[in-house]
């Protein structure tokens, strides 16, 4: 992982498990692909956007401590979800955008893996018309 520090990556993984529960069940190959997709996406971003994203991770991790006296990743699952849900609909546009960006990365890391497709019913075929006319 070139784009994030170990601590930032560990926090991102904790959040990713709330966003996409199946991330917790990825095998080592799937986990490696998860990080590669995220890293590739972050590495092509301009430095200013990457810096903003890292700052958002910092805020997301520690802002809950003002209320719960613990960082986000040390809260119970339900409380973590509640915080994310509140931020997602926050009156502050920047916070909403930050959550959306974070979720998008998590979705990319998981649903961007071709290996996941069959398990979620996504199975396009190159000769789709042939299959279509064969259907009853």
């Amino acid at each position: 992982m070139k784009s994030l520090s170990d601590s930032q990556a560990a926090f991102l993984l904790a959040v990713a498990r709330r966003v996409v529960p199946a991330v917790a069940t990825l095998d080592p190959g799937g986990t490696e692909r998860f990080w590669r997709l995220i890293d590739d996406a972050l590495n092509i971003k301009p430095p200013a956007i990457l810096a903003r994203f890292k700052f958002f991770l910092l805020i997301l991790r520690w802002a809950p401590a003002l209320v719960f006296f613990r960082p986000l990743d040390r809260l119970g699952p339900g409380t973590q979800d509640g915080v994310l849900r509140w931020l997602q609909s926050s009156p502050i546009r920047l916070l909403r955008v930050g959550v959306w960006g974070l979720k998008t990365l998590c979705f990319m890391g998981y649903y961007g893996q071709p290996e996941v497709a069959a398990g979620i019913g996504y199975s396009p075929v190159l000769e789709g018309n042939e299959r279509l006319v064969e259907r009853p």
């Binding site: 709330r18 966003v19 996409v20 529960p21 979800d81 994310l84 997602q88 979720k103 998008t104 998590c106 979705f107 990319m108 998981y110 649903y111 961007g112 996941v116 497709a117 979620i120 996504y122």
Partner: peptide, 12 residues
């Protein structure tokens, strides 16, 4: 899959 996932609100 990814485009659909990011087009929806919510998570979990």
């Amino acid at each position: 899959p990814f485009t659909t996932a990011k087009s929806c609100i919510g998570f979990g």
